[in-house]
Amino acid sequence: MTLQAPAAHAAADMDGDAPQQDAAGRARTARSAAGRIGGVWLVGVILPVALAAGWELAVAGGFANGRLMPPPSQIWSELARLAASGELWTHLLTTLWRVLAGFAIGAIAGTLAGLLTGASGLARQALDPTIQALRAIPSIAWVPLFILWLGIFEASKVALIAVGVFFPVYLGVMGAIGSIDRKLVEVGRVFRLGRVQMATRVLLPAVLPEWVISLRSGLGLGFMFVVAAEFMGASEGLGYLLVDGQQLGKPAQILAAIITFAILGKLCDQALVVATRPLLAWRDTVRARL
């Protein structure tokens, strides 16, 4: 028997709590959400703008000496100078390249290792204690060794960043696999999925939200370690600008580099969020965690 269409609709409506909205209601929700986001954004801007304006006025009015802590106008003109001479872009691209290369290596290695130890008890017992012991070493401690092994140029820097990115990604993926709902895994078993299919059709999608979160913390650490790497000896990069500014007594240059770091880091993080958003459209959470 096939159900008559009206009967089917009636039955569909009979379930009662079906979350259905009329078009007008949806539009209303969308508008108010947009308004809320705009408002929140503005609220967040008040504090930094007020602080910057206050300092600018304090220095301009002669209440403070701006030599060690230059006012925003000086930082801005320093940024403009660096950008006009092209220096800024050279340093920025060098740093960006190092972060992305290290991030790619660390994220891929961390994901694979996390999958392995998360899905296999034997691999976890064999590998996880060693990895956890390595994690306990402050990553900066590797620098002298990496420089001896890989030289003072790019390879040692990228290696340090990769190490920094590896651990949060590894921990995130391994933990997420361990906490997958057994009930969903059973659905895979009932439909007789093999090991590979179980991994690609159930385990991986189930850990996607945690994976993206771990990638974001990994990316953040990548930016932390690129500075460390560039402190150790570099002739290019935003970290070099910092050291150079310190040695030559140019606080405006230091602050210009710091602001560039902030903007670059935020943009990279945002790019990661936007790139992974389509993968996470299915989530049913109070608010997106990303």
């Binding site: 096939t2 009967a7 039955a11 569909a12 379930d15 079906a18 049913d284």
Partner: peptide, 21 residues
């Protein structure tokens, strides 16, 4: 889906359905 009276619901996410659906 048609047989269980949910024709046209194919493109929804599970979270958009009620418990009975």
């Amino acid at each position: 889906l048609e047989r269980v009276g949910l024709a046209g619901y194919g493109d929804r996410w599970p979270r958009e359905l009620s418990g009975g659906q």
